[in-house]
């Protein structure tokens, strides 16, 4: 059984269809990239999965539970973590407190008290390599540090599925490599499925993505292993605007 299943999910904004009849399955521990240009519906899809928006049509099943109408704060503890494209730290709180919030509210166990959460936070901060910033106010971090902190915060929720909003955009290639290795290692150990948003398909190749789902104007056009997807003519059309032959002819 798939960890996450979307069945014909549609989300509209006042007549504008942002996500159109999308069905997909994500298995436990899988690394998937949601690929599509700006405005293709990636962010809306994420927001529908974690409950910021409710879809007009379709169902969302997570870990065997129908979560279609569940508010976001009830979905997170089931095991859905999220990072944002532009990091959204709780600025006035320290890094340690930020990560502790994830441990405190992001799991189903009601027994996690403040002290336990802070301990969990310390472990995760060590693991991510943020210990020198642990007492710093999150608002004062650099963008890269903020991204790392967000990942730590999401990991503290012990997610089964981690939704990452273009987590690598704007980072130095060396940092990306390092971070990808780190996330991959943790995800493998904890069996976390990762769905990351990718603006351009070429990024999926350098990333860790095993499977890509390509969105175009709200609809899913391709759902295949990364290598296959790269050669799919529909993908080439979306990204280059024409079939490859014509492109050659022009240039």
């Amino acid at each position: 059984m798939a960890l996450l299943e979307l069945k014909n999910v549609t989300k509209e904004f006042g007549g504008l269809v942002a996500v159109n009849q999308v069905s997909l399955e994500i298995d436990s521990g899988e690394f998937v990239g949601i690929v599509g240009p700006n405005g293709s519906g990636k962010t809306t899809l994420f927001n529908v999965i974690n409950g910021v928006f409710f879809p007009e049509k379709g169902n969302i099943i997570f870990d065997g539970v129908d979560i279609t109408r569940l508010p976001p704060f009830k979905r997170a503890p089931l095991g859905i973590g999220r990072t944002f494209q532009i990091p959204r730290p709780f600025s006035s709180a320290t890094v340690r407190e930020n990560v502790a919030v994830g441990a405190m509210f992001g799991t189903l166990s009601k027994k996690v008290n403040v002290d336990d959460s802070l301990e969990i936070a310390d472990q995760i901060i060590d693991r991510i390599g943020l210990h020198e910033y642990t007492g710093k106010q999150a608002g004062t971090l650099t963008p890269v540090e903020k991204k790392l902190m967000e990942i730590a915060r999401a990991l503290a929720m012990k997610p089964k599925l981690l939704l990452m909003d273009e987590a690598m955009a704007g980072m130095h290639p060396n940092d990306i490599d390092q971070m990808v290795d780190l996330i991959k290692k943790i995800a493998l150990e904890e069996k976390i499925a990762i769905v990351s948003m990718v603006e351009h398909i070429m990024r999926a190749v350098v990333g860790m993505v095993e499977k890509v789902i390509v969105l175009h104007q709200g609809s899913k056009i391709v759902d295949a292993p990364t290598k296959e997807a790269l050669e799919d003519p529909k993908v080439i059309e979306v990204y280059l605007g024409h079939p490859p032959e014509e492109t050659h002819a022009v240039s």
Binding site: N50, P72, F73, F90, S92, V101
Partner: peptide
């Protein structure tokens, strides 16, 4: 010193992010 304080800080700073972190704002 309790969960309430952490939840309030989180929602004061960013209500949407707080919700996504599992906080019943």
């Amino acid at each position: 010193r309790s969960k309430i304080g952490y939840a309030l800080t989180a929602l004061r700073e960013d209500e949407e992010a707080a919700k996504v972190m599992g906080i019943n704002v």
